[in-house]
């Protein structure tokens, strides 16, 4: 049986130092809940590097290709239009005219794709139930989540108190 301990802090620097101490004892910090990003916390608790950038690149490429394929079809293959006498025989000749739309569509796909991926991955899409342990972490409190075996529970709690936690809650896993 293991226990989930939630240690609450009222200062991000105290939490950062506390997390360093806990990690140096060889205990894994499962997660940290905070109203804003805490600088340096990723390295301390060993969060894996985000792969969102790779997604962004793929979404961007998708937008770029879709825009170019679309405009080639609309403006050159299906219904060539003569706008100001600009060449409409092939894509490359008319490329300067298509760049603004391509650029905008790439940004559109990247931004929306990233935002939706982010919400999905965090399970925070509109209508989903919030899963943070304490609603105060969306305001001015910081919570550190730690999983320990039941027999080491008391030892862990006293260690966390030492690091400056103001409140400790636990829950059976």
């Amino acid at each position: 049986m293991s226990t989930v301990i939630y240690a609450m802090y009222d200062d991000d620097h105290v939490l950062l130092d506390g997390a360093k101490k806990v990690v140096s004892k060889g205990i894994q910090v499962k997660d940290v809940f905070s109203p804003f990003p805490i600088h340096g916390i990723d390295d301390v608790i060993g969060v894996r590097k985000t792969r969102l950038a790779i997604c962004a690149f793929i979404y961007g490429l998708t937008g770029l290709s879709l825009a170019l394929i679309g405009m080639r079809y609309f403006m050159i293959v299906d219904w060539p239009m003569n706008i100001g006498g600009k060449p409409n025989f092939n894509l490359l000749q008319n490329l300067p005219a298509f760049i603004p739309v391509t650029f905008e569509f790439t940004v559109f796909c990247t931004a929306h794709g990233m935002a939706i991926t982010y919400f999905l991955r965090n399970k925070t899409l509109p209508g989903m139930k919030a899963k943070n342990p304490d609603p105060r972490t969306t305001d001015d409190k910081f919570v550190m989540e730690i999983h320990v075996d039941e027999d080491k529970e008391q030892e862990m709690i006293s260690l966390l108190k030492e690091t400056g936690a103001i409140e400790i809650n636990k829950k059976k896993a």
Partner: peptide, 12 residues
């Protein structure tokens, strides 16, 4: 570069 080029290219 492109903003300058594209408008001039298009207006011709």
């Amino acid at each position: 570069w492109f903003a300058q080029f594209m408008l001039i290219w298009y207006a011709d």
